[in-house]
């Protein structure tokens, strides 16, 4: 659900606005969502998104989901948190029922135990179900996209977040925090929340 931003002293960097699926993924030059979906289709709907912490893996996976559905596939998504060593039975049954048509989109696949990962791959192959994963490390699937964050793309994200809000955050604020967090945009955005909050309360207006 996309609701118009609340301009009543909201903070554009609040957690709700940073959730994957809420902000758009910014592709590097020459890449697009359609290209990715084409590449995925060419690889039999199998692929992996890898990259460092806070570089947009979950966001890209969230952006891919409707694009894959637009190609007539049935997408079954799950996000695995720390400690989730196996997939829910219901999810596996749904996968089995989606034979030939489904694509499993799994965020955090590295959380799975090694035999559960093997089982997942085996299931996807025998049931002809696609498999798209987002992971910190290689899941031995066709490489779909390697996420990384640079200053210009990060600033593009920040500008989109600040769209419709007073622009209290400047590009040099972002660059400093991105460098401090070694390219982890998520951490940088959390820092920017505090900065934006401080500046909006003290009435500091950022020069354009």
């Amino acid at each position: 659900m996309r609701v118009q931003p609340n301009l009543d002293k909201s903070n554009p960097f609040c957690a709700a606005r940073l959730r994957p699926g809420t902000i758009d993924f910014v592709f590097e030059q020459g890449k697009s969502l359609e290209q990715l979906v084409d590449s995925l289709a060419a690889n039999g709907w199998r692929g992996q998104i890898t990259g460092g912490h806070g570089t947009g893996k979950s966001t890209l996976l969230a952006a891919l989901t409707p694009a894959i559905e637009g190609r007539g596939r049935l997408v079954l998504s799950i996000t695995l948190a720390a400690g989730h060593r196996h997939l829910p039975r219901r999810f596996l049954r749904s996968l089995a029922r989606a034979a030939g048509l489904g694509v499993a989109a799994i965020d955090g696949v590295e959380q799975l135990h090694v035999w559960n990962r093997l089982l997942l791959k085996r299931l996807s192959q025998t049931r002809r179900v696609g498999l798209v994963v987002a992971s910190h490390r290689s899941a031995r699937l066709p490489r779909l996209y390697e996420t990384a964050m640079d200053d210009s793309r990060a600033w593009s994200v920040v500008q989109r977040l600040q769209d419709g809000f007073p622009p209290h955050v400047r590009s040099d604020d972002l660059v400093e925090r991105l460098a401090r967090h070694a390219g982890n945009l998520r951490e940088a955005l959390f820092d920017l929340y505090d900065l934006y909050e401080e500046r909006s309360r003290t009435g500091c207006v950022s020069p354009t």
Partner: peptide
Amino acid sequence: YSEGKGDE
């Protein structure tokens, strides 16, 4: 609803 640095 809540807003801020926590989940909603």
